[in-house]
Write a protein that binds this DNA or RNA. Sequence first.
DNA 1: CGGGTCACTTGCAAAATGATAGTAACTGCA
DNA 2: TGCAGTTACTATCATTTTGCAAGTGACCCG
Lengths: 145, 145
Amino acid sequence: MTDDEKNLGTCPIDRGLTLIGDRWSMLVLRDVQRGLTRYDQIRTSLGIAPNILARRLAALTETGLLEKRRYSQRPPRDDYLLTEKGRDFLPILAAIGAWGGKHVGGGALTRQIDVETGEAVRPVVIDANTGAPIGSRALRLEYPD
Amino acid sequence: MTDDEKNLGTCPIDRGLTLIGDRWSMLVLRDVQRGLTRYDQIRTSLGIAPNILARRLAALTETGLLEKRRYSQRPPRDDYLLTEKGRDFLPILAAIGAWGGKHVGGGALTRQIDVETGEAVRPVVIDANTGAPIGSRALRLEYPD
DNA sequence: CGGGTCACTTGCAAAATGATAGTAACTGCA
DNA sequence: TGCAGTTACTATCATTTTGCAAGTGACCCG
């Protein structure tokens, strides 16, 4: 058994959470999507400690969710952009937002508006095979081997 | 500004993550969905330290994602069931699983099979308004006030 | 030369996590 | 009656992570 096999296991949820299973990482991703691509923008937006943010950004860059882009040669400065892997995670953030909006607290909320329709998006997770919302049909687990 | 307003903010993603923004909580939810509803079942499945699991289960119960049900009067024993709030989160776990399966590591994976079709589900987050996948259309943030 | 900006690093305290052992309330068996 | 076994924890303590505050380095601008 290699290290990778041992550490990763066969559960894809577990695998996913190994890369981004913490609050700050997800909030950083959210901020980058919003256009806050620089260290200080993210730091002031989140109110996160500077050493923690530096560590998170390094980890997200290392795991390939973000990438650095040099926007100034002198002084040398980078900003952080989403990779495809990172962009692919954004719909999950939207789904978490939908859940949080529905189930946590009350009052006014920030919303994501579809630019064309002008309506707030209502993220739902469906099965691309059937089009049915996940949870509306019976499922069974299948283990490898 | 009330405590609630101060602590929650207006971002629904932030709100959601306040309740379940950690790895263990999500994995506990996954296990309960799989039918592991008892303390020892979850503990051995996850390999989590007993004090940590006890704390997580208490937190998830407190925040209303799980509820205790007495399954034995003598000796007094409870198992943990998903509430509606908890069940509502499961599609997000499925989406995280889809992302993890696609982007993290290789090799064989546990899959969720639709019992009727026999096919592995392919979770995708769409906008219920347009039916389009989140990410395929331009969005804009709208702040309250 | 003296601020100001930006992106951090360093040092240390506080909090969370994790390993290990122990406890409580039983049941079932001899 | 006694003792092992099951289940669901709690208690204690070491390790790890997080967070705060202050400092650093590389510049630019006046």
